[in-house]
Nucleic acid binder design. Structure first.
Lengths: 240, 240
DNA sequence: AAGTGGTCTAGACCACGGC
DNA sequence: CCGTGGTCTAGACCACTTC
């Protein structure tokens, strides 16, 4: 950030970024005291209220804890509960070798229920593809994705097998992901699924139906996921 | 927060409560404009920053939306995603007649795994009780709860069958509930469960194991829930 | 142009924690 | 005791929306 920059960024956001960097770069570790309000005000040449605003923002994001009479401290690294993450992202932290195999990919026009979930006319053309997730050589998840075909017609098989769907959507298509609503229940493996997963007919599976919304609150991706219950557990945190 | 505790309550909290009441009492409905910052400041005799603080707090709670240049508006009623609620509370909004039958209740001392979840010694005495949830006359959920026996020795069968466990804990024992971590997977009904639910052996069930924490981040309640997958869906919202 | 929320100042007093 | 965060004042200017 140079002096010539016409810096329109609010002061409190700049202070937030500065502290965030200290944490990211490891200068401040969990438990360490963060520069106090009064010091921040002096250092950055702002009023106390502005320095407060910065710390309050970081607290809301869960980066720091504030203790009256004591100070502001870097919060312990949080497990990212209830975060919308792609499979690739979820696995990144766990050093598990997971492969993806693209089973099918085609444009369909007869999925009225799914079109309805995406707020599209019932005969709207959708791009559907199935991906099998394998740990080692053992399949443990089958995910079927549905996207509006027109918008994402340039999606290639290659990209889907290689990287994360989320990163393709965010980087190549500029989609801003906002949130997802999931419906979770249980089902039993029918003959086809039993064959796919290599489990007995009737084997319990976790079923997750998911509508993913863009930043404009527009639903644009529907995912039906089926997971071997013995190899997959869903973690949720609920707050009172 | 009541009107009688004006003495020590911060002004911004009083203003928040006042607006919250307007919403609760139906004077302000979703979409309606909330009193502006400047008006609130005049009305309550506080500075602009304090009025701002109140509206910012309500925004953080999701009660209002703020639109620059336009105003502050009552937010549409939010679906309570990812909220820690008792079964009774969940059903309250749905006009479903749900009954609870207490199947068993006893103190046990040989549940080391569950004691571990509650950060207690492996032979610690736990109060265990099973509750069957019925819609109409049809059972659709079986919940087994574990509590430290000493603290909750006065819990009566009567209270458990009558009201919500949460309300008993919060009102009678003064427990402040904070959050819960859940593990969700699927399983198949064994003979006993099949008989309990009146479903075939092997029927898919949703299984939720839940550790509930008090405000001091102390785990104090473990719940194992089994749900007929065809009568029960879990809803989750995830954010990016 | 009038009204709104967003940012910010330069102070103030209080309640609390640790020394 | 001193430093901390929590609350608050009485203004100010800006950016934005609506009319």
């Amino acid at each position: 950030m140079s002096i010539t920059d016409q810096d329109t960024t609010p002061a409190y956001k700049r202070i937030m970024s500065a502290i965030q960097q200290q944490i990211d770069f490891g200068e401040l570790k969990p438990g360490h005291a963060v520069t106090s309000e009064r010091e921040l005000a002096k250092i950055h040449g702002v009023s106390l209220m502005t320095a407060r605003h910065a710390l309050a923002g970081l607290e809301r994001e869960g980066m720091v804890e504030r203790r009256r009479g004591s100070g502001t401290f870097v919060a312990p690294p949080k497990i990212h509960f209830n975060k919308l993450m792609s499979y690739t992202e979820q696995m990144a932290g766990r050093s598990l070798s997971v492969r993806t195999r693209l089973l099918s990919m085609k444009v369909i026009g007869d999925a009225p229920e799914i079109a309805a979930h995406l707020l599209l006319p019932s005969t709207y053309r959708l791009l559907r593809f199935e991906r099998l997730r394998l740990a080692g050589n053992e399949p443990f998840a089958l995910e079927t994705c549905y996207l509006p075909a027109e918008e994402f017609s340039t999606l290639s098989r290659d990209r889907l097998e290689r990287g994360s769907l989320f990163s393709v959507l965010e980087n190549d298509y500029g989609v801003k992901l906002s949130h997802a609503d999931e419906e979770v229940d249980a089902t039993a493996a029918d003959p086809r699924l039993a064959r796919t997963f290599g489990v007995p007919h009737g084997f319990p599976l976790l079923r997750i139906r998911e509508v993913i919304y863009s930043a404009q609150s527009r639903p644009f991706l529907y995912v039906l996921g089926l997971y071997r219950a013995d190899r997959h557990t869903l973690h949720i945190r609920r707050f009172r």
